[in-house]
Amino acid sequence: MQADSATLHPTAAKSKRLRKPTKHGRYQLFFMASPFLILAFLFSYLPLYGWIYAFYDYRPALGIAHSPYVGFKWFTTMVSNEVQRAEVVRVLRNTFGMNLLGLMTSVVPVIFAIFLVEIKSTWYKKMVQILTTLPNFVSWVLVYSFVFMMFSTQTGFVNGVLMDLGWISEPINFLASDSHIWIKMTLLGLWKGLGWGAILYIAAIAGIDQELYEAARVDGAGRFRLMWHVTVPGLMPTYFVLLLLSIAGFISAGFEQFYVFQNAVNAHDIEVLDLYVYNIGIANSSFSYSTAVSILKSLVSVFLLFIANRLSKMVRGESII
């Protein structure tokens, strides 16, 4: 039968044969991509269903079906009066302030990487790299206990040394202080992330064409000129991509660090948006309110991403999305 139809309609058979590979290829590509599309849908879009909780007064035992509908109440609560608004402004100020400091210090790993590569002694280079990368794997909880041990007034060695030297007469509780807290937190973050952040740049430096260095050397460039005119421009694309990505994500950065370091004295200046959501919402089981705040957070993130993209277009002439 098949043979018959083929002989009866030679043109049809021919066109089929022609079209088949493209059609086949199209589906093949689609099927190859589909697992990832499904995953993206499952983990990135399906959870958006959870936004519905922001419009209910959700109580876990009753389920969403039996919880009362409250409309936009949670959204308006956030800005309902002056003190409340001041709270939101304070939290946003902390979020943006500390993250901007973080962005500003993001050049430090670049500088670190550039100088590290210049070191001749291999074992010393390796050692420095390992020692600076290790803190990245220490959790914030452990970092806090370590810092607490160092600065504790009773057993801390910092207070011990200062007292023994006779510089102070009474122990000082350094952790219960809000002076320069943003800078202290940024430095801690830098200490933890320095080596890890430098890894990408070290790899990028290895990828810079050696001929560029040779040509520059022939032209009489010294060591610092090589760094400034070859290495730095070679790193810029990597740096910018990472910078732009971190701008887009910065509203949700740093919860863990601030959560473990917060106390009554510094909470005012350390409470970032995520921590605020936790302290007000999750810790008190106000799930609906927390959801409402996170929705706003997502919107701000999308907004920031577009700004970053625009910036990228302006500065480098290419966009990242």
Binding site: F148, S152, T153, Q154, E170, P171, N173, L175, N263
Partner: peptide, 11 residues
């Protein structure tokens, strides 16, 4: 009066 452990807030 110096009777309060300075660690109180953080411990």
């Amino acid at each position: 009066m110096g009777l309060l452990d300075p660690d109180s807030v953080t411990q």
